[in-house]
């Protein structure tokens, strides 16, 4: 069974450039790729890479907690996504007709070329912002990484109409914010609260994604909006 020393050796094998490249790709995948499995993989890898990055700021044992939380979050999202997007076999098995079904729409509001343009603009804005503003005590590496993750997360939130993808964007944002905040305030309380916040977010998003639609608030007229008498 691998020990913490093995984990430390493994973490030390990653250079800063590799970590940066990994996080760059993780954000790009969540913004560009529509398939939930690949995006979930990107989210999980983001948790591992951020834990490696944070292990240079805080003790390894504590940084590893983020990886465990990431594993739980990924598990929650996986179970929710399996319910939301059943495979071909399960779809065929579900023969029961539904009383009212929403028309199926894409995961994103906009097409792939526009998403790529959006990603490029976000990258440019991160480079420009990191050159223009400096936070006290914050090393440039953490500042740029945090900004990139937070901007990528917000971009995902802005472009998606899918609740689960929005949750992924939100978790990217909290990771970015966590890196920025921990680089200016090395507090373990904040770190612990951010880990708990990730779990609460995952729980709320899983609920929003899996709860059945409420077409009408009251009454039987489907054209009514909620709260209308």
């Amino acid at each position: 069974m691998p020990s913490l020393d093995d984990l430390a050796r493994l973490f030390a094998a990653f250079s800063y450039y590799q970590l940066e490249l990994g996080l760059l790709i993780a954000v790009a995948v969540v913004v560009v790729v529509a398939d939930w499995r690949i995006s979930l993989l990107a989210l999980s890898s983001q948790y591992i890479l951020v834990a490696i990055l944070l292990s240079t700021l805080i003790p390894l044992q504590i940084a590893a907690v983020r990886m465990i939380a990431g594993g739980l979050v990924a598990l929650m999202f996986y179970i929710t996504a399996r319910r939301m997007y059943p495979g071909r076999r399960r779809r065929r098995a579900q023969a029961e007709p539904q009383t009212r079904q929403e028309p199926s729409r894409g995961i994103f509001w906009i097409n792939l070329p526009f998403r790529l343009i959006g990603l490029a603009l976000a990258a440019l804005s991160v480079i420009a912002a990191s050159e223009q503003f400096v936070l006290l005590n914050a090393p440039l590496l953490f500042w740029v990484t945090g900004l990139w993750l937070a901007t990528g997360g917000l971009l995902t939130i802005a472009m998606t109409r899918d609740a689960l993808r929005l949750g992924m964007g939100l978790l990217f944002f909290t990771s970015g914010f966590g890196i920025i905040y921990l680089s200016i305030d090395n507090s373990l309380v904040i770190y612990a609260l951010l880990v708990i916040a990730d779990l609460v977010i995952a729980l709320a998003i899983s609920h929003i994604a899996s709860v059945p639609a409420q077409f009408v608030g009251f009454g039987t007229n489907p054209r009514k909006r909620r709260g209308e008498l």
Binding site: E102, I205, I208, A213, Q214, R226
Partner: peptide, 17 residues
């Protein structure tokens, strides 16, 4: 909260954001 559209973002999801 009770989302109006299944699996889709709405007032509840954006409020969480």
């Amino acid at each position: 909260m009770e989302p109006r559209h299944g699996q889709r973002t709405g007032g509840a999801a954006y409020y969480l954001v």
